[in-house]
Each structure stands twice: as C-alpha cells, then as structure tokens.
Design a protein around this nucleic acid. Structure first.
Lengths: 208, 208
DNA sequence: CGATTTGTTGGTCGTTCGACAAACAAAGAA
DNA sequence: TTCTTTGTTTGTCGAACGACCAACAAATCG
C-alpha cells in the first residue's frame, strides 16, 4: 500500500538520533519531554504520535545506540580470529567509543539509568537485561575460541572469565566518565589482558 | 553550654541514616524532598532547618556513607601487611558490602548520580571527586608496598595498576546491581588477582 | 513567666506530565 | 479537484511534583 495523506515533514531517524544525544548526556530521568521536543525540533504531540511514550522512545533510542556505538565492540568480538584477540580488540573498541570527542565519555547502556525513582523500574530492568546480554555475548565468544581450538577450556571457567572482562568494560565507563583519557584506559586494558595468560593456562601452582 | 529552648524530637543521626537509605536506593535525582521527609519521619521544613538544602543533606549523607559502608574496603587497604593482600582484601570487602542482603546491591558512590539533569552538575562532580580519591588511595597503598619492600616497583607503573583495580571495583558495582551474587563476584576478583603477578614482575617476554 | 529553640501547617512559585482539542496548513492519492 | 491524512500551533486541563520558606504552635530551659 502506498503512503496516503501528508507525508512526515521530519525524519524519524534524525529525530531519534537527536533524542539519543540528549538521553545520552542527561540519562533517562534527567531528560524531560520538553527537552526532547526542543532537541528533536518537533512538538511533544508529534513525539507521542510517532514514538509513543517516553519509555517507548527510550527503548527505540537504545536500539539505535546498539547498532551504532555498540557495534564496534561487538564487531571486534565477532571478527577477530582468536578469543584472546577478540577480547583485546573489544576492550580497545570500547575505550575508543567512550573517549570520542563528540559524545559523552561513557557508555549510555551502563550509566543512563542505574538507579532512580520507583516508577522507572521497568526502564532500569530493560537496561540491566541488555547489560546481561553483554556477558552472554562475551562468554559465547570464549566458547567459540574453545571450539576453534585457539583457547583451551580454561580452569577458571568461561563464565568467570567472561564476567571479569564484562566487569572491566563496565568499570572503564566510570573511569572515562570521571576524566580518564584514552591513554589511561589503554593502561587499564593492558593490565586486564595481563590476566589472560594466567587465566587460560593450566595452573602450575595454586595462587593463594 | 546547656541546651536552651525546645529540644529536638528526632535524632539527626537516625534521620541522616534514613536519608542515606533512600538516596542509596533511588539515587540523587530519583529521591524527592517529600520522599525524604516521609522516610525521615519529619516535615521537609525540619530537613532544611537541620541539614540545609537537598544538596547539603546529600553531602552529609555521603560523609556518613564513607564512614560506614566505605570503611571496610578502606580498612582492608590500611591493615593488610602487603600490597597484594591489601588489594585482594579490599576487593573482597567491596564484594561483601555490595551483596549485603539489607542494602542495595551496589556502591552508592558509584551509581547515585553518574548522569542527570544539568542543574545537578555540582553533585555529580562532588561524587566524581570522591571516586578519584579511590584511585589515589589505592595508588598510595601500592606505593607503601614499594616502601615496605613487599612490592618491587612494577614495570606497568603504579598508576596503571591502581587504575586497573579501581576499574574492577567500579565494575563490580554494576555486576552486583545487575544480579551477580557474592560467588560470581568472587570469581571476578580471582580473575583480577590473576593479573597481579604478571603486572608486578619483570617481564620475561613482551605481551603483544 | 519569658526567652529560645524546634516542629508543623500550609503555602509559595515554578515546572512537568500526559492527554486531549480546535483550527489551520500542506501534500499526495483517487 | 476533492478527499484524506499528517503535521503544526496553540491552548487547556488538572493533577502532580519540584525545592523551598514564612507564620504559627509547642516545648523546655533559665
């Protein structure tokens, strides 16, 4: 069916991008609908007509975020030939993303709504779910390394190692938020990768 | 001087503790003065008379938080005999604190106000400053290890190692917030400590 | 008692929310 | 051209909420 009636005068993708920028900077609760309407260049009535509620809009924003800023780390995991290289490249891609000069210095998924008013519990849990996916994705990549033969099933356990690197990724966001630069993040990544060989080899002696 | 006039009917310390609990659960912006007045059992006017503005109250709350929940990790750093034991014990104390059944499963210092509305910039920077102190405190402890002789000045640099463990501490908060239990945090800590020996010994071969 | 301090009630003043309504403008389809 | 759809502007509307404060009532001391 062809589009009847008056076509949209604003581009929903552009508007969504503008909403993303604002949510990114101020978090979910810190952003009001009026702020959004102003930034998107449309009336709040149009926001409701096109995107639904504030929460609906935010969920769409997060989908866009995942396919843009979230993509480089995910691609690193996917395309690097070994599990080790994949983890290292993912950490670096993350550091690159959260120190870009044109965007806030942190991962939106992690800091947009960690706590808040009771009525926004659903939003927080939505984000928590996405964060848990991070852990799963990393763990799957490690498992692939075992399948591929570049990683010997480590004694520490895939789950623990995946959780460790997830923790580092999430900690990096706080570091960048608090002013750490790309160089400082790289130093943290180097430290995190120093654990790799110990974690993925058969223990010759027990550590404490 | 003896107390003149009508004595207080509420205990400021108790009220502060109740304010702490609420700020901890909902974050800075997610907590309204009405919420606070209700939880503290006093009228909002009494809050102003006794504690000053919302921001003043929050700063006093954070001071209390630092001397209560913040103390075990700090004590671990202080009292353990070696730098390595200090870092390990600090991580464990942190994990203990953020998985207590009677409090929210995260560090308030890290998640109470990472982002938010423009007008609360001062509060965010106040917290960021306290977080930067974490890094400094850890770094100082490592330096003490060098002085004490239990730690050889590591090639990675004290600053980098301190930042790495600060990053882990901060990442643990997100993990616990998202549902990771004490056991899972322990596994992350084990991974983080696996990096220690590599980081604090002379490199036999260059890593990537 | 009278001075002093505290707590309460009620209110300021401003903003926000989502919802909804009317009236008009614009653009394309039949 | 006429109908249909979409969008805009503007407004209402109430209810709620935000931080904050002034006037009054209460309690205890010297």
């Amino acid at each position: 069916m062809a589009t009847r009636g008056r076509p949209r005068t604003f581009d929903p993708d552009t508007a969504l991008r503008q909403a993303l920028d604002l949510f990114w900077e101020r978090g979910y609760e810190g952003t009001s609908l009026n702020d959004l309407a102003q930034a998107m260049g449309i009336a709040s009535a149009s926001i409701y007509a096109c995107f639904g509620s504030k929460e609906d809009l935010f969920r769409k924003v997060m989908a866009l975020y995942g396919t843009t800023s979230g993509e480089p780390p995910r691609r690193a995991l996917r395309e690097q030939p070994t599990a080790r290289a994949a983890i290292h490249a993912m950490l670096r891609a993350t550091a690159d993303e959260i120190t870009r000069p044109d965007t806030p210095h942190y991962c939106m998924l992690i800091l947009a709504a960690p706590t808040g008013a009771v009525e926004n519990h659903a939003v927080r849990e939505f984000l928590a779910g996405l964060r848990r996916d991070m852990h799963t994705t990393i763990k799957d990549r490690l498992a692939r390394g075992v399948t591929d033969g570049d990683l010997i099933a480590p004694p520490a356990g895939l789950d623990a190692i995946a959780r460790f690197y997830t923790t580092v990724v999430q900690g990096l966001s706080i570091q960048a938020r608090d002013g750490a630069g790309r160089t400082e993040l790289e130093a943290v990544i180097t430290c995190a990768m120093a654990a790799w060989d110990t974690l993925t080899s058969v223990p010759s002696h027990q550590v404490h």
